[in-house]
Design a protein around this nucleic acid. Structure first.
Length: 867
RNA sequence: GCCCGAGUGGCGGAAUAGGUAGACGCAACGGACUUAAAAUCCGUUGGAGGACAACCUCCGUGCCGGUUCGAGUCCGGCCUUGGGCACCA
């Protein structure tokens, strides 16, 4: 073997071996226990970024670990290939999105291969290929048949200059990113998927996912947002006809405190009222400007204007004024709310601003109500009792809701209802680079689904978008078709599907990526569910919820079995780096890449400042943040691999922090990871040079060697647990480092010492091999093995060597550490107490005071409580 | 604004079920080797105080309060910070 560790040579050696032996090809084999390890597939944006490297390294370590445990492992890879960035790149470079996307895939595939991931590339797929998205269309048609897919209007961002629908991302401070014009909300017809029909299942089945992080389940449950309340109506007269203004509330107990109602600007009542009221029309227009994002709407200043209309209180019959409010969402609930200023904080402030009456209807004993300022208890429902509420006085929350619901029902004006925060999934996008929605518009027959035999509806790949509208509308060869029902000329739908549709079922397609006859086949029964899914925490809600929904639909269509697609989930943290910038006196902020910045420290290592290497002038530190183009703080994985090799990159990423936490970049720590690999290499090289030991029965070992063997197996035990159960790879690596540190101190070169060292090195190489597979591959052969480490299985734990006669226990006096004692393993509690009290340091601190209590935690600690 | 996390030395982090705070690594400092540099190896390294010394004492896990023999860990209230909020993926 080489004296020096040459990462490039080592990587080539290992990767060629895997390629030649087709090591990572996954074969469907029901006789073997399978393990499906899946990382979220990347959007082919151009180059791999550090987030990808982290994601796929975590997945690869788990896949390789499971493989060594003897499982039949599937780890596939593909491309989430439709999306907005391709259209933006197309506009910038005048290149069709397809061409840009395929070039990016080639580049990123090369990078993934350089990192040595144990991927079965035979199963590669890309969502922009008709063989794939045909089945998006096919299942969409099944959903139409079942009424799960339906058509309805929805609100979008409209750029009046470009005459284009914009994504939220393309709206900056209420203006279109290219034109700078003020954005308007606009209602257009769209296709929706009725995910709310599955709301109950999506919520209840979270209990079937014990191996998901608690926080993801909590976020999903809150997102689905089941609430119990009352849906009821305020009647009113319109053009001589009886109409009803419907609202939903979880606080029906406060209904007697309603002093006004508020409706969204898009609500029909607002539209009607604005007709003969120019001031209101102007206000409605104002509300319709701005973004559709909920975060914006929730933080804007609450504004309103009276609609000049009154509705009737359903219980008292009193007139209630209707206001138009910019904070009421048309897309949520009824687009109208009842307002109870006394018991809802938002209504309270709104009422104060517009001098609307505030009527207290809930009292809590011991608290006094005042309209001067809001107090927390006003909104409390647990301790409250109704007052000023006529027949409902003195009822508690549950009693009042019940009684009021009964009365509303009797008047046919409402009833108790379950309400979901979750909204149906609008999938129509007025964009080119996506999966066409398989619908044909016929003047005679209406919206006609494309028959199965005509699938897929193929997207032309040679369009170049120009920023105004959807280029598909200008493609007569795409749009012009015939109605499948009447045969007359008709138009194709030009909207495409949300890219979340593509990523909602790709995991199932990996089981049979080449099947041209069906969406999935019986192989999904073997491979699904995914045993381990790994991806960014930023996908905790949308992607995972849509996937769970889509899978349930596939189940109900009879394609798959089981209720959930992902058994275990690991959400990795983001990759962060320092952010440096300069802000010229009257210019835009300029960001500098940390690689170009030198940090100044004082003699204690505290940061004192930073300068740009190029000009030696100071730059400002803006803290740490996720690696991004806009902050110019990314690290290119490619240059990292070129400098240190794939194993160093992988080792650093797995060592720097546990997978669920954020990872802060550090060039110095990367160099440290490389140093460890070089040391490991040298250790093996020296050991091999000294001659490999003969393999015999274990001889009786002297105490120091026995101790080292014990450490070897303690390390194996810990690493196995850390990698398999805890998934804390950083502590697994630390444990191996401790072992190699101890090994470095062993200067003995006797035959027994060689045997102990050999075993320790073999186990180190084997357990590190999922993390640093290339160097492990070469070192394993160097240690005299005939079979590749990837096929060597997991090392066996020697439980005999772990047995000890005595152990160390910690002794505390009043909870403070005062001494350590050695105790025989079989010693009982009384004996342990005796030994602890006999300790010199302990008795000094007890100091003759009366011992009140002694607590013994077996095998760990003794706490002596004195007066 | 709402939902969900996180906060421990100069830095990344460890402490797995309420039981030794700071494993492992980085940086820094001191030393060895070398003509020199790189590489490598050895040692020190939370703060304050005390002892010639082996060592000893006190303080310390964002802030305030609580439960407990014992709290980084549990509970209540804050502060700061990260992710998500439905058309970025």
């Amino acid at each position: 073997m080489d004296e020096q560790y040459l990462p490039g040579k080592v990587a080539t050696n290992a990767q060629e071996y895997w390629e030649k032996h087709r090591t990572f090809r996954a074969v469907t084999d029901p006789k073997r226990e399978k393990f499906y390890c899946l990382s979220m597939f990347p959007y082919p944006s151009g180059k791999l970024h550090m987030g990808h490297v982290r994601n796929y390294t975590i997945g690869d370590v788990i896949a390789r670990y499971q493989r060594m445990q003897g499982k039949n492992v599937l780890q596939p890879m593909g491309w989430d290939a439709f999306g907005l960035p391709a259209e933006n790149a197309a506009m910038a470079n005048n290149v069709p999105p397809a061409q840009w996307t395929y070039a990016n895939i080639d580049e990123m595939k090369k990078q993934l291969k350089a990192l040595g991931f144990a991927i079965d590339w035979d199963r590669e797929l890309a969502t922009c290929k008709p063989e794939y998205y045909k089945w998006n269309q096919w299942l969409f048609l099944r959903m139409l048949e079942r009424g799960i897919a339906y058509k309805q209007t929805g609100v979008v961002n409209w750029d009046p200059v470009d005459q284009t629908v914009l994504a939220n991302e393309q709206v900056i401070d209420g203006r279109g990113w290219r034109t700078g014009s003020l954005i308007e909300k606009r209602e257009i017809p769209m296709y929706y998927l009725a995910i709310t029909r599955y709301a109950d299942q999506l919520l209840d089945d979270l209990e079937k996912l014990p191996e998901w992080p608690e926080r993801v389940r909590a976020m999903q449950a809150n997102w689905i947002g089941k609430s119990y309340g009352v849906r009821f109506a305020f009647p009113y007269q319109l053009n001589g006809k009886e109409e009803k203004l419907w609202v939903f509330t979880t606080r029906a107990d406060t209904i007697m405190g309603v002093t006004f109602c508020a409706v969204a600007a898009e609500h029909p009542l607002a539209t009607h009222a604005a007709k003969n009221n120019p001031a209101l029309a102007a206000f409605v227009d104002e509300c319709k400007r701005g973004s559709v994002m909920e975060a914006d709407i929730a933080t804007i200043e609450k504004k309103g204007m009276p609609a000049g209309i009154h509705v009737m209180h359903p219980l008292t019959g009193e007139p209630v004024p209707v206001w138009v409010g910019n904070y009421v969402l048309m897309g949520y609930g009824e687009g109208a709310v009842m307002a109870v200023p006394a018991h809802d904080e938002r209504d309270f402030h709104f009422a104060k601003m517009y001098q609307l009456p505030i009527k207290q209807v809930i009292a809590v004993s011991g608290e006094s109500f005042s309209t001067d300022a809001w107090q927390e208890w006003y909104a409390e429902k647990e301790r409250g009792r109704c007052i000023n509420s006529g027949k409902y006085d003195d009822l508690d929350y549950a009693g009042a809701v019940e009684a009021i619901a009964v009365d509303l029902k009797r008047k046919n004006l409402g009833e108790k209802q379950v309400m979901w925060r979750l909204r149906d999934w609008g999938i129509s996008r007025q964009r080119y680079w996506g999966c066409p929605i398989p619908i044909i518009h016929c003047d005679r027959c209406g919206d006609v689904p494309v028959p199965d035999r005509d699938l897929p509806v193929v997207l032309p790949e040679d369009c170049v978008p120009d920023g105004s509208g959807n280029p598909l509308n200008k493609r007569a060869d795409f749009v012009a078709t015939r109605c499948p029902e009447c045969g007359q000329p008709a138009r194709r739908e030009t909207d495409t599907m949300d890219t979340f549709v593509d990523s909602s079922w790709y995991y199932a397609r990996y089981c049979c990526p080449d099947n041209g006859k069906a969406m999935v086949d019986e192989q999904v029964k073997y491979w699904m569910p995914v045993d381990q899914y790994i991806g960014g925490i930023e996908h905790a809600i949308l992607h995972l919820l849509y996937s769970r929904f889509w899978w349930k639909v596939m189940r109900d269509v009879g394609l798959v079995q089981g209720d959930e697609p992902f058994a275990r989930l690991l959400t990795q943290g983001m990759v962060l780096n320092d952010i440096f910038f300069r802000k010229p006196a009257n210019g835009r902020v300029v960001y500098f890449n940390p690689a170009d910045v030198e940090i100044k420290c004082d003699e204690k290592g505290n940061r004192t400042g930073a300068i740009l290497k190029r000009d030696g002038q100071p730059v400002e530190f803006a803290g740490i943040g996720t690696m991004s183009k806009s902050k110019n703080n990314g690290v290119d994985p490619q240059s990292l691999i070129e400098q240190y090799g794939a194993d160093t990159a992988r080792l650093f990423i797995m060592f720097a922090s546990p997978p669920e936490m954020t990872l802060e970049w550090s060039d110095e720590a990367v160099a440290g990871a490389n140093r460890f690999l070089r040391r490991l290499w040298r250790m093996v090289a020296e050991h091999v040079r000294g001659g490999l030991p003969a393999r015999k029965e274990w001889p009786d070992l002297p105490p120091d060697l026995l101790e080292l063997r014990r450490l070897t197996h303690l390390t194996l035990q810990k690493v196995t647990d850390d990698m398999g159960r805890r998934r804390t790879f950083n502590t697994a690596i630390a444990a191996v480092m401790e072992l190699t540190n101890a090994l470095g101190k062993l200067k003995d070169n006797s035959e027994p010492a060689k045997r102990v060292r050999h075993e320790a090195l073999e186990i180190s190489v084997q357990v590190l091999s999922p993390i640093v597979p290339h160097i492990s591959h070469v070192l394993w052969f160097a240690l005299g093995n005939k079979q590749a480490v990837v096929d060597s299985g997991w090392p066996r734990l020697d439980t005999v060597v772990l047995k000890q006669d005595s152990l160390e226990m910690v002794v505390q006096v009043n909870g403070k550490l005062r001494g350590r004692v050695s105790v025989p393993v079989q010693a009982g509690e009384e004996r342990v107490k005796e030994i602890a009290l006999a300790n010199e340091a302990v008795s000094r601190h007890v100091g003759g005071k009366a011992v009140k209590k002694v607590i013994v935690v077996p095998g760990k600690l003794v706490n002596i409580v004195v007066a």
